[in-house]
Nucleic acid binder design. Structure first.
Lengths: 155, 155
DNA sequence: TATTGTTATACTCTATAACTATA
DNA sequence: TATAGTTATAGAGTATAACAATA
């Protein structure tokens, strides 16, 4: 596939200068594991953005489409479409707001909750298998690192 | 935004059962950091799939559109479009294959190489800043964890 | 008059099917 | 006849602008 005349050495700047590569190596590993985790899906084949709405509702409870759009960083018309798609799949329910008739309340259905749980279960299962291939000492290292990574993730 | 009647407790299965949550916590942290890394872009505003083609060419050298499609898990017509877009931006060059006139050779231009380098530089910079906020001991822990995560990523 | 959500329309990315050129 | 790539066309997902209903 690759033609022999055009192969250049994959020289990263960090390695060329001899500078520390922990950040770079960590970035590559993190990115690759995240991609493999994303590939583990639940029952329903959802786009990542649609699944994101489910997790947000799972975490924060029912929200208006506008609030969801803010939270997911999309525009309101896009969220209208996303919510309608999820409603057609029976994963969310659109309800009237109790006092403000302009608003719509988007609520996760039981199927929606189940989809979030199942997807997380499969992703955790994949990662758990990988952890089981490590020694107890290595798992301790990763447990300690998890605390640090969590701090970084929320920084 | 959230209406008070519909908030349910965010009870994950792992926590409810008291089972170990390292895998789950690690997954959450990994996913979140990866998302924040992806948000660090280079000069040109490229979709993640388009940038993926640049990194593949950066790593493996010039390839045919078909080989790129295989590598990136998209269909050939999609890769044709992607490559044409990248070529219009001056990030890749389409060349004739030396012996097989059916084939096209897609080569990363100097601007393409620079885009890959710059994007990686910004992502490494973001992560380096986060690492600098840790103690030396914590950095040692993450350095050790990086080796393990790299192994997992490639498993 | 401001806010919430939707409809109308368009652009991007992806796909399948059909076509062209070459091996 | 098989292979590499493209063109034609369609389906998601997202965007901006314009509109409807309600506060």
């Amino acid at each position: 596939m690759t033609i022999d005349t055009a192969c250049q050495p994959p020289a990263s700047n960090a390695r060329r200068t001899g500078a520390p590569t922990v950040a770079s190596d960590l970035r590559v590993a993190l990115t690759r594991i995240a991609r493999r985790l994303r590939a583990q899906r639940g029952e329903v084949d959802l786009a990542e953005g649609q699944f994101g709405v489910l997790t947000t509702l799972h975490k924060h409870g029912a929200m208006s489409p506008g609030a969801l759009a803010d939270h997911e960083n999309v525009r309101p018309p896009s969220m209208t479409r996303t919510v309608n798609t999820l409603a057609e799949h029976g994963l969310v329910t659109k309800l009237e707001h109790p006092t403000d008739k302009r608003q719509v309340v988007v609520e996760l259905s039981e199927a929606g909750h189940a989809e979030v749980r199942e997807t997380r279960r499969r992703r955790d299962q994949w990662l758990t298998k990988r952890l089981q291939e490590l020694t107890p000492e290595e798992r301790d290292t990763l447990a300690a690192a998890t605390k640090l990574l969590t701090r970084i993730a929320n920084a």
